[in-house]
Nucleic acid binder design. Structure first.
Lengths: 240, 240
DNA sequence: GAAAACTTGTAACGAAATGTGCCAGGCCAG
DNA sequence: CTGGCCTGGCACATTTCGTTACAAGTTTTC
């Protein structure tokens, strides 16, 4: 029933992040990797990341800075990896808002236990992440009410949306102008990974188009990116 | 304003628990002490403890046992103190449900940081409001009187609610905008776990809709989330 | 104290939502 | 221009949900 948690491992050293990701996958989690702050931000925007494992010492954007950013803009839990065993570093890390930290070198089994512990705590908290983004979003001739889960036309008439349609539309509206692969959409809508040759998203996009596009044969809002996925192309503005 | 968090320090050694409690008080927290499992249970029963700092190695009742008990019967966060730095011990502690742990000897400042981190997380969990008694909640075109267990329409006419219907509605009103699974609803309304394929909640929701929804075929207040459960979608405000 | 009224859980069936298989047609590389 | 890969959309299978009917338990009424 619960979708498999999706972990993002951020470390500049490939010899660390790749085996670590593999280890997590082998132990029943899903895992993505990022080599630095830029990659990490992109991944978080386009995937449904449930937890970030973050090396504190990285070239380019510092780990602490990324951690601070995550804490300010999301509720995604963070576990820090630190090379030094200094008390001060630990305290700074926790004070900045990390949920836990580990000192390198660490036992992968312990990291796994901590990930599960943090997730267990986080899972009990209903995540207001997306719903908080905006209460009502206007696009094309429509307004999507995120709280009431309703799509309202310019004439004020509500168009009924199924759960999957609503979720898919919400994902698009929160990421306009960004190409989203089928796998990313599947992750963002239902939290699961893609099976081999998964056409579920195609179908949902088709159904969504039938409801929101004036001419479903010539989609204007949700464009197909050949070989890439789908992209929402329209202004999205917040409505009070 | 937030009340000062109340910490319970459980350790069999007086040279540890007393200075520790003093240190916490000096740093803006309230602290109580207990020398063992029996004291600790009594203290938790009679005080509003917000967090427990617990030595894992104690004569009499073991720390782990107390931790497990706390996890099963309360939501109070636990930070474990362990004498050994063994990986396995750490893992066991986290798996048993502790929120964090520290290895002795530890830096008091670090313990303080961790206490604050755990409290910050715990506080963000929307705890079901306690003083719900004597309140009246307005939603849609209705007012639910929690005292009289009555549902009053905008025309002032009371609609009779059965016990289960009232309980279900109250649960929804206390958690608007949150998807509640069938299992959660069953737990919150009648305190029991879900049997295999329990459709009792579906029925209750259906009955509730028939009473509160203007058009039960197109529910506006209680929306169903396909594959997820149900969600109350409407503003809830208190009425004096 | 017994019958009637009401409540609530269980079963069952049809309806709705969603995923999968398939094929025709579109898009791109060579 | 042609073959291969990708997408759109239909039909169908599967899962999940809404509603009704009914039975068992509970409260009320006389």
């Amino acid at each position: 029933m619960e979708p498999t948690p999706h972990i993002l491992v951020v470390d500049d050293e490939r010899e660390i992040r790749e085996p670590l990701a593999k280890y997590l996958v082998k132990n029943g989690l899903r895992a993505s990797i990022a080599a630095g702050g830029v990659d990490a931000r992109k991944e978080i925007k386009t995937s449904a990341i449930d937890l970030v494992v973050l090396d504190i010492m990285m070239p380019g954007e510092d780990g602490l800075s990324l951690c601070r950013h995550l804490r300010e803009t999301t509720d995604i839990p963070v576990i820090l990896l630190t090379a030094m065993a200094e008390d001060t570093d630990r305290v700074v890390g926790l004070e900045i808002g990390a949920d836990d930290y580990l000192t390198k070198p660490f036992n992968p089994r312990e990291l796994l236990a901590r990930i599960k512990a943090v997730l267990r705590r986080a899972r009990s908290v209903p995540r207001p992440r997306e719903a908080m983004e905006g209460e009502r979003l206007r696009f094309g001739g429509w307004v999507l009410d995120m709280n009431r889960r309703e799509l309202i036309g310019n004439d004020g008439v509500a168009a009924p949306l199924s759960t999957a349609e609503f979720k898919l539309l919400a994902v698009f509206l929160q990421r306009p102008g960004i190409v989203l692969s089928r796998e990313q959409l599947l992750d963002l809508t239902s939290g699961r990974g893609a099976e081999v040759f998964d056409r579920a998203i195609d179908n949902q996009v088709s159904r969504l188009r039938r409801k929101v596009e004036a001419d479903p044969k010539n989609p204007v809002l949700v464009k197909t990116v050949w070989g890439g996925g789908y992209m929402f192309t329209a202004e999205v503005e917040q409505v009070s």
